[in-house]
């Protein structure tokens, strides 16, 4: 806010005082506006409370949390995923959404199959339709072991 030298030289004392007060106020407000703009920018850039979802997938748990014939439901991108330790110990992951009407399926260790509670859809442990109304097998998602960690990766 540089002042105009020509106008300052001819101005009376009182006017000069008022004007410098105005200058001060203007400078202060401009500084305030600038500072106000800095706050959101800094807060925006500071680490968020919850980190974003990784690009790779979701950790379903430790390998030893999955004994043979056990299962667990985890969430990937807001979608339920059923991780099953099939007889023999292999881990497989399926979208837990029944292909019929989208209910969440569950693993039955006793019958070694995946069952839908809504309309009696039955799937084999490899996702195939065994019985009931589901029109197609469960969508399988890749499972990756990272050390002792079980990762379900986006299909």
């Amino acid at each position: 806010m540089s002042d105009d030298p020509t106008s300052r030289s001819g101005a009376p004392e009182a006017k000069l005082g008022r004007r410098s007060l105005l200058d001060l106020a203007l400078t202060a407000t401009a500084g305030g506006v600038g500072a106000m703009a800095m706050i959101p920018a800094l807060r925006f850039a500071s680490p968020p409370p919850r980190p974003p979802l990784g690009a790779t997938g979701v950790v379903a748990g430790r390998r030893d949390e999955f004994p043979e014939r056990s299962a667990k439901v985890v969430t990937l991108d807001g979608e339920p995923v059923l991780v099953v330790a099939v007889p023999g110990g292999d881990l497989r992951a399926f979208s837990a959404r029944c292909t019929h009407l989208g209910c969440i399926v569950a693993y039955s260790a006793e019958r070694e199959q995946i069952e839908c509670p809504c309309h009696g859809g039955r799937f084999a442990a490899d996702g195939r339709v065994l019985a009931g109304p589901p029109p197609s097998p469960l969508r399988e998602l890749p499972v990756v072991l990272r050390g002792n960690e079980v990762l379900v990766v986006r299909g």
Binding site: P40, A41, R43, F44, P48, P49, R50, P52
Partner: peptide
């Protein structure tokens, strides 16, 4: 994520 989880994300 920006809109929901980042402070002032919706504003920016």
């Amino acid at each position: 994520f920006v809109v929901t989880d980042v402070e002032y994300g919706a504003l920016v």
